[in-house]
Design a protein around this nucleic acid. Structure first.
Lengths: 337, 337
DNA sequence: GATGATAACGTGAACGGTCAAGTTAATTAT
DNA sequence: ATAATTAACTTGACCGTTCACGTTATCATC
């Protein structure tokens, strides 16, 4: 019903301004070889005709799209990823790039990369928290398109940006031990997730290092529901614990509910702590002691690193490991039992 | 360091298969005019050389990109929008479209549309909860690119998909009145938001209709923090209320904290209800009575409607108004004061 | 056995740009 | 005064597709 505005091209400008269309191209790209007078004249015509260079045509010749693609691999639960998406889009845009989102299953990764190449995206951000693929394989897939994983992937020498999960877990567990807790339960993210694996392993290791027996544990995805169910499972074992380490603030939220339902008071009966430091952690009952993952920072670094790689494809790949801090609130306290 | 794989083109295929490259094009697009034998042969060559048609080149000739662009206009706080992004990307993909995200300020809307046109995106999804632009103006901007707003925009005859905020608010307020509450406070979203405006107005109107004086109110953005602060403000007025209607589950979460801090018990002293029915509403203390906005459904409808418009640009635009349901949990109860 | 239809291809141009090399006129050097 | 240099454009080719025709061979038809 509304007519699509007839697109005005570089040749239209040229005709009106009485130059060849190649000259118009020079003006557009601020290249030398055009007198100030004609440059001005061409500019004016472009304004008058409301000219906007066709980006697709430009892509075709320059082989650059100024687009980054975000691969979300094997992720069902949106959760905090969602905020990151907006972050990344924002930072990308600030740097002159658009962000394209695509969900993928790891079984179709090759296709996804091919498709990205066919679209001439300049680089790929990958959020694939459960993808354990040998570097060589991943390298084969991506065919040299700059790639940065927004994940903690120890063992991989490809480019990634992630929070040190081992350090993070140690921070949490040692804090609880320092408070005098000796029976520490855990609700780690599923060990199918790379993060989950390291959280679980480190939790266990740090306890053993300190001569403590690991408390009961049950894993789950990042959701509140999972946290609730895992907490129920742990409580049902009947094994005693004075502290509970939840995988995320969300999971802690679920766990808190389970604990409350059984009449347990936090932190009097059980100290609870978690990871993420989302806004939620300030508003739970009681507010959560948590490990502060600054996702916004991680997102920013990932995007900027990717852009760096795009501009300079021959730089050696490296890994950026971020260290979280502890944020102490009211869900934890010293244990004197 | 890693070599970008040399791209193989339609001409490479043609050369190997001993046909003209146009014939290869026919095969790719499943068009008639090619014998079964050569078709097979060409297919085989394409497989062998791992050929993937260049989407950019295709865009240029077909004027279609199979891309939708999501405009996020004047939105700072991520919140629930974020999940929607993932939803939309998912649905788009299921229908053969990619989703491009771009944040925009309403002051630069024209540029954003021009940029989208230059990219040849097939359609635009707009999430602009505070954009009140006359239809004529918006029409001028978008130049005929199919556009669907994922918003409730009463008064606009352009395409939009949104939950009926008036109905929703009426549902909530009348429920509270039905429970016997006569002093009902509110924390609506900022009235700068279209939703916020209607929520606030309707809250007031329904009360007046029922011969009740509107209780105290304070607005805020969608965050928990805003909910907390607004609740504090309301409490500080000293005006009595037995029920509190919060703009979102998130805001309710913040409000709950404020109420708890003052020693108020929910729902004994104050009934609290809100809007959204996010996962959070199940896990607050107590779980929230809330109006169920099925965002996932809204997202899906918006995307599908947009695709419909793309395929059939001459259909009359219309508006899809969704009706929410009430979900009753434990944060509300009858008032007998 | 000339005619027309049809299947199976090939040809040329176009999409809207960029890029490298060529041309012209003015300017400078010798 | 002529050659060399430079500024300011123009020309032609190309990016990898699709699209509208043109061409050829095959085969049935009368």
């Amino acid at each position: 019903m509304v007519e699509r505005k007839k697109t005005v091209t570089i040749r239209d400008i040229a005709k009106v301004a009485n130059v060849s269309y190649q000259t118009v191209s020079l003006v557009m790209n601020d290249k030398p070889g055009v007198s100030a007078a004609t440059r001005r004249r061409i500019q004016q015509v472009m304004d008058e005709l409301d000219y906007h260079p066709n980006k697709v045509a430009r892509m075709l010749t320059t082989n650059r799209s100024h687009t980054l693609e975000l691969f979300v691999v094997d992720v069902q639960y949106g959760g905090r990823l969602a905020d990151s998406t907006k972050n990344m889009a924002h930072i990308a845009r600030e740097n002159g790039y658009n962000l394209l989102i695509s969900e993928t299953e790891s079984t179709h990764l090759a296709e996804a990369f091919d498709s990205a190449a066919a679209r001439m995206v300049d680089g790929i951000l990958m959020y694939a928290p459960r993808l354990r693929l040998p570097d060589a394989e991943l390298r084969k897939f991506h065919n040299g398109i700059p790639l940065v994983r927004r994940d903690y992937v120890p063992g991989s020498k490809l480019a990634w940006v992630g929070f040190d999960q081992i350090y993070a877990t140690r921070l949490a567990v040692e804090y609880l031990i320092g408070l005098g807790h000796r029976q520490i339960a855990a609700i780690p993210p599923s060990t199918e997730l790379i993060n989950g694996y390291w959280r679980y392993t480190t939790w266990k290791n740090v306890l053993l290092e300190n001569g403590l027996e690991p408390g009961p544990s049950a894993e789950g995805d990042y959701s509140m529901k999972a946290g609730y169910e895992a907490a129920c499972k742990i409580l049902d074992t009947g094994e005693p614990f004075t502290a509970l380490l939840a995988g995320t603030d969300n999971m802690a939220m679920g766990a808190l509910r389970a604990l409350h339902e059984r009449g347990l008071r936090i932190p009097r009966d059980v100290s609870v702590m978690s990871f993420d430091n989302t806004e939620l952690a300030n508003y739970t009952e009681p507010p959560l002691t948590t490990v502060d993952f600054r996702f916004a920072k991680q997102d920013e670094i990932a995007v900027k690193y990717l852009i760096e790689l795009i501009n300079n494809p021959d730089t050696e790949l490296h890994q950026r490991v971020l260290m979280p801090d502890l944020v102490i609130r009211e869900s934890t306290r010293a244990n004197h039992k």
